[in-house]
Design a protein around this nucleic acid. Sequence first.
RNA 1: GGGCGCAUAGCUCAGUUGGUUCAGAGCACCUGCCUUACAAGCAGGGGGUCGGAGGUUCGAAUCCUUCUGCGCCCACCA
Length: 899
Amino acid sequence: MLSSHFNPQELETRWYQHWMEKNYFHSEPDEREPFTIVIPPPNVTGVLHMGHMLNNTIQDILIRKARKEGKNACWVPGTDHASIATEAKVVGMLREKGIKKSDLPREEFLNYAWEWKEKYGGIILDQLKKLGCSCDWERTAFTMDPKLSQAVIKVFVDLHKKGKLYRGLRMTNWDPSAKTVLSNEEVIYKDENSQLFHIKYAFEDNPAEGIVIATQRPETIMADVAIAVHPDDERYKNIVGKKVLIPLIDRAIPIIADSYVDMEFGTAALKITPAHDQNDYEVGQRHNLEVIDILNADGTLNEAAQILVGEDRFVARKKIKKLLDEGGHLVELENYVTSIGTSERTGAVVEPRLTKQWFLDMKDFAATALKAVKEGDVKFFPENMWNMYYSWLQEDNIRDWCISRQLWWGQRIPCWYLKSDESETPFVAEGEKEALEQIRAHFNDNNIDLDDLHQDEDVVDTWFSSWLWPITVFNGFDDQKELEYYYPTNVLVTGWDIMFFWVARMIMAGYEFAPELLGENARGIQPFKDVFFTGMVRDNKRRKMSKSLGNSPDALTLIDKYGADGVRYGILSCTSAGADIIFDAPIDPATGEVLNESKLCEQGSKFCNKMWNALKLIKGWKVEDKEQGKVEKLAIEWFENRLQQVGNQLEIYFEEYRFSDAILSLYKLIWDDFCSWYLEWIKPEDGTISKATLEATIGLFEKQMSLLHPFMPFVTEEIWHQLKDRAKGEDVIVTPFPEKKAYDKNLVAAIEKAQTLVTKIRETRASNQLSSREPYPLYAEKVAATEKLFATDGMAELVSKAANLSNLEISEKGEGIAFLSGAEKYYLGAEVEVNVEEKKAELEKEIEYQKGFVNSIEKKLSNERFVSGAPAQVVDRERQKLADGQARIKILEEELGKL
RNA sequence: GGGCGCAUAGCUCAGUUGGUUCAGAGCACCUGCCUUACAAGCAGGGGGUCGGAGGUUCGAAUCCUUCUGCGCCCACCA
């Protein structure tokens, strides 16, 4: 006995377990064609959010489809160690315990971090299981697994050997919260309301006079080493070379001339602070100026500042404002909107800082990555993502990748230095022993010991390990057997926001290492053939859904409420490639909190319920030894063809990654065509049905479940099994799709015509307040189109059943309520009181409209350039439309005449 | 400052080389139905001069120009 409502929770667990037991998700290389996807590894500390739901649902659809097509489908799951984010969390956790990171040795800190990872690391993967993701869990990888880390080290050494990695002192982006350097891509610029401080610096030799500069950062004046003006600036020409005193600390600095200064901006005089600004640093280099760094790693002022020592930079700004004002140095305050760099991970305002870091030379990499997409070896969906890609990678824009991070959680840089070597000559090697050899050889001293060396304290950027992901998950750097089979992967599904962080860099790594690893055995060297970029999931106010904004519904609560299939449906139906996704999750106006509700997911769960009820209907029928009726025969034939049509269309949607169109077409097929039309047609009065019809219906239902399975795996598997007894292993997850073949367009069109007629009859009933339960006769006017329609065996019965007719007759004339379906006239044989005036007005209005319609077509057809210029097909269509229109007018006028 | 994209029904969006059923879908709304699978449902309905203006064409939501309003990416101007 089936429950009255579809109940997803229990069966989702049951089916997932069943699939796992059958090992359907696991893949081993064999003779079949592989279909590979590597998951964009979520942060190990992360929890499932709407963005994950979206791209993992899509990946699951693709992988399930491939599996059903008989390919060797392999979806590799895993997580990313996310150094900054994870380290920040562990530091926070320790702080709560009263432990400072700086008090811990590296080893001990890492033990805590691993403990943390073991405890929370698997959460997001378990959540993916709830969503139904059919990942090969035996292959679950982690970017800090020993083999993956080993590969990072190898790659580091290799790139160093090739001369693509170098260490240097550069102006870098410093995150004072995480206390590490960041790559350019990790800096997010935001507009902020700020103030421009106009500050007067007095001349050393004439303290009464001075020069006014403009700055946003008054707290850095103690690090000033010069004032710069434009060499052509007449206002300042005669004071270049003079010295001025820095306010408050009275250190003398020169006025210099440099064409970098913009004569139009501010006061056209610029303070030069090489330690705390990229441009100032460059100016300083040109003029051989000193670098005075007044900031500590955590953003507080150091001794060099002389005043406000120990204060945070933003506190210092407030305080120095007061000091400058009191000292009479502050001339003006101007409101100003400025773009300010913040850390992608911690949100802290990034500080330009001069540090020694490791960089990867990007020139060749960028060119290769650009070419791969340009030449179509890697295809982007949607195509226009190329623009963004290009703008970042083009030669004069790309900058070297800063890959070192001042963190502990991650792969430690395989570089050793001789402790006594003040110039810090780096020795890059896979291990300390190899490094020792190099160092002994270099310094020509065999007495040097391991104790005399020290390893670089830093780790590499997380992305320097994840850029190898499509290779390392198959242990490609150790043993190429699996790589040969699975690489290149078929498609990457990810958000465009990590195009630079990850997508571009994976392409670079693929082209750099796959040829070396695979040689002639490579089926391709690109890491993936297609990239499907999903949009960002936003709320109904178009804000990006994020944990910090609190505007994202809780993924698991949604799954609890609507079922995994319902949520999958909901998220898919608002997905279009590349475009942002407005996921409507209403917000409680009273509390401002997001309600874990979604209309679209609700629609998805109702859809499940609908299918469930169709199942109940079919299962309630008893087979009786009786002949199959005409209606059933025709309905079955029609639905087979209609199903074929949708199946073919689905194939096109898949090729173009149009998931919302795909699921909507299945929704309509099942709800409208199958439930509303087909089942109503074959539904018996007495609950008994012929064997042939029941079997055909089950077969049709099966096929629909098969087509829908990749999108909504649980409900389809359940119904598939409820429909009939299955042999062991006969699960829809591994059942091939229905065969693709041509369908009968004429039959589909004919039924559509019949459906239009049925709707017209219902409409006529409704507008005349006639009960839908009362059978009435229908008279069809004898015209060619009508005769043709009803020549199909069973068509009259089909229409009669759907429209509840007592009789359907084609005759020269009929009586009752006249109406039009297409250009054909029908009469519904019912007596109604007719309001003549109303009816007249209605007809006149309709005639007028039809005449306008006919006029416009006549005009078109009398235009010779149209008749000669347009394709014959189009002209024929217009002629048909004209004839239909004229026929309609004739009928309407006859009706009018009768009144 | 450079570049990309979007604007179609109250809302979210389709509309694939200009031409059938080109002005559509879902939700929302209105009307009538507790018809034995489903009220988480059934049957029907109203609603848009396709952002504005010009142009190309026999024909424009679709191509071009321009304006307006949004969104995004990139870029070292205090």
